[in-house]
């Protein structure tokens, strides 16, 4: 008797959940936001492939953390949550941090990894201080400013999604146009320079594209976790294929699915931040890929090793007989 009731409740819960999911999927706001984060993930997958191959993932991490004080200062200056101003502030403070990091390590006063973590945390700390002091002020406009820390995709407006879509499209066209230049400068920048291509143009274009991608994702994914969205998809994709174009395509797919799924998870419960949800999904792809991918995967390598061991053992035994 008790069991039957339990099953009935379970059935009801399940039906409720399915109904909730159905409602969510049909919800216009959710569709807009999911499209936005999905496209953001796609873009991060593509551009992030360059970042990881150029070993600049950490620089992206530092840059995004360092964007926070710029967002706060941008808000203080105009006292409004005008996205373009906040993004401009983010870019400026991110660039200042990058310049400081590079000068510190180039003058060899501080090693690059120390400079990165030092500047990353100090800028982020400054950003938190500024944001907290803004929140203590009685300005109703500041609501939602803290979304920039962990990301809240539901704050995304249709215009934001359009901005992501349009900017993203420009970036993708640039990738297609400068495919061979980006490829050679990612693999062997010294050699690229001897071919007559201006390294200034190619490298600053590449860096700008990485910066723009990070800035685009700040509001929905947050400054702390955007770099995971930038690196995760390409790291996972690299496990499955040895061709740059396929790595990029696959990374785009993983990024898209992660963006949409993460937004879905975050919309299911109240006040679940989008950034962490997306990053958790990306991480699943990464761990799964590291583990089960053929050839490069841990499991495949282990099995190949075992097989070799067996073959050698057999050979040795047959020699002994």
């Amino acid at each position: 008797m008790k069991l039957i009731i339990r099953i009935e409740t379970w059935e009801k819960v399940k039906a409720d959940m399915l109904e909730q999911i159905r409602l969510l999927l049909n919800d216009y706001t959710f569709q807009v936001v999911a499209l936005g984060t999905g496209f953001l993930g796609l873009l991060s997958g593509v551009i992030g492939t360059y970042a990881t191959l150029r070993k600049e993932s950490l620089l992206g991490d530092a840059l995004s953390h360092a964007a926070l004080p710029g967002i706060g200062i941008g808000f203080i200056l105009i006292q409004r949550k005008e996205l373009s101003v906040l993004m401009l502030g983010a870019i400026i403070s991110g660039l200042i941090a990058t310049v400081i990091i590079q000068t510190m390590s180039r003058k060899t006063v501080v090693k690059l990894d120390s400079a990165l973590s030092l500047i990353l945390s100090s800028f982020f700390g400054l950003g938190l201080v500024i944001l907290t002091s803004i929140q203590n002020n009685p300005n109703a406009q500041q609501a939602g400013l803290s979304n920039f820390i962990f990301g809240q995709a539901s704050a995304m407006l249709r215009s934001n999604v359009q901005l992501i879509g349009l900017t993203g499209l420009v970036l993708l066209v640039l990738v297609a146009l400068f495919w061979k230049e980006f490829k050679v400068f990612t693999f062997d920048p010294m050699f690229g320079r001897t071919l007559g291509f201006s390294s200034k143009i190619v490298e600053s274009l590449l860096s700008t594209m990485i910066v723009v991608t990070i800035i685009l994702g700040l509001e929905s994914v947050g400054v702390i976790l955007i770099s995971a969205l930038l690196t995760g998809p390409s790291v996972a994709a690299r496990q499955w294929t040895n061709r740059l174009s396929l790595v990029m395509l696959l990374a785009a797919g993983i990024g898209f699915v992660s963006g949409v799924t993460g937004t879905f998870i975050s919309s299911m419960g109240a006040r679940i931040p989008t950034g962490p949800s997306i990053v958790v999904v990306v991480s699943m792809f990464v761990f799964l890929s590291l583990f089960i991918s053929p050839g490069r995967g841990i499991l495949a390598r282990h099995m190949a090793y075992r097989k070799r061991q067996k073959v050698f053992m057999k050979q040795i035994r047959s020699l002994e007989e």
Binding site: K55, K183, T194, L244
Partner: peptide, 19 residues
């Protein structure tokens, strides 16, 4: 260079033509 870069031998040799 990083030889774990996702490229084939032909990809790398082709880079000689880029200039």
């Amino acid at each position: 260079v990083d030889w774990d870069f996702p490229a084939t031998v032909l990809d790398v040799v082709l880079m000689g033509r880029y200039g």
